[in-house]
Design a protein around this nucleic acid. Sequence first.
DNA 1: GCCAACGTTGGC
DNA 2: GCCAACGTTGGC
Length: 169
Amino acid sequence: MASKKTSAKGKRPRRYWLFKSEPESYSIDQLKQDKRTFWSGVRNYQARNLLRDEILLGDGVLFYHSNAKPMAVVGIAKVVKEGYPDPTQFDSSDHYYDESSDPADPRWFVVDIGYVAKTQEPITRDMMKDQSELSDMVLLQRGSRLSVQPVEKHEWRTILKMGGVKETF
DNA sequence: GCCAACGTTGGC
DNA sequence: GCCAACGTTGGC
């Protein structure tokens, strides 16, 4: 399958990310059913920069339920398409419509992610806070609100181990 | 360019 | 439901 974008493979080591989602708006079960989705609606410049420039094909994604019971990492996904303009910004009927975004110079970006696995149990925020290896996680820092954020390799490995899932992609 | 007002996020 | 921490907006 040809792609305009060059593959990330061999260009740099796989990197890891955490995507937050309120399960009432989009849950891991929905992703499992959909198999893949485009991560739309991010309207924060720091997160936008990651989606546009840093998050590459094959990267790993921790899927986190925010504002939920429990708040937890509930699964993993992988990046299946690199950054491209978020179509919802140009759709005037969409909740995420941004009238000030110029189609010739789009403001907001998405990536596509594909379902990989659910963790055997939710890895709750409390479980993560109890794990000293995870004490530097962006997610656990005070006031951290980034909805798309970087995860260190050792943090990724720790959480996959806690979740009983193997990196199979 | 400063900063007060306002809106949102998201844990608690 | 509360509110701290942020990000954005807009008047000056």
